Simulated assay, not measured.
Amino acid sequence: METPANDNSVSPAQRALDTLAENTEDTAALDTLAGSDVLVPVPDDANDQDAADPGMLALPVLEQQGGRQVVPVFTSELEMADLLPYVSRYRMVPLGALAAQWPADDLSLSIDAGSEHRLTLTSDGVRTLLARP
């Protein structure tokens, strides 16, 4: 399904995901994505003070089949509600800044996990492709 170029309801980050679904090495799309803000769901067990602390960010970790752990982030409230309708709190975070501080373990990142053009990156991929100074 192609999105019309003049569709204002599609964010630049979503257009970048569409481009990357066709060409995973498109550097302009990777740069756009890295420069975008994403919604990071606040885990249910995070208290209000921690959820509001700009110096701390609790990552929601989901376990997938085979024990692989992934952090879901989203380009819009609609994308988040499609996959995680029960989430009531989230934080807006620059994806490049999040990637620059990504843990060095086997934690993957999934952007818009419920959409047909989702992008999931390994820990190394997050730091290599999306981290920006």
Rank of each mutant, 00 (worst) to 15 (best):
S9E: 04
M56W: 05
P85Q: 13
P12F: 08
A29H: 06
G125Y: 09
T27P: 01
H117L: 00
D31Q: 12
S88Q: 09
T3K: 01
G125H: 06
D31R: 11
S115G: 09
M1G: 14
L119E: 03
I111G: 04
L121F: 01
A5H: 07
V93Q: 08
S123H: 01
D106I: 00
E79V: 06
V70L: 02
L109M: 08
E116K: 03
P12H: 10
D50G: 12
P43I: 08
P85H: 10
R68Y: 11
A16C: 10
L59W: 05
A99F: 05
S88Y: 08
A21Y: 04
D37A: 14
P72S: 09
H117S: 03
R118C: 10
D112H: 01
S11K: 06
P85T: 13
D124V: 15
D82Y: 13
A97I: 00
D124Y: 15
N8V: 14
A131Y: 12
G96H: 06
P133V: 12
P60C: 04
L78F: 05
V126E: 09
G114E: 02
S110L: 12
L98T: 05
E116V: 07
G125D: 11
G96Q: 00
V93A: 00
D82N: 15
S115K: 00
Q101D: 13
E25A: 11
E116L: 14
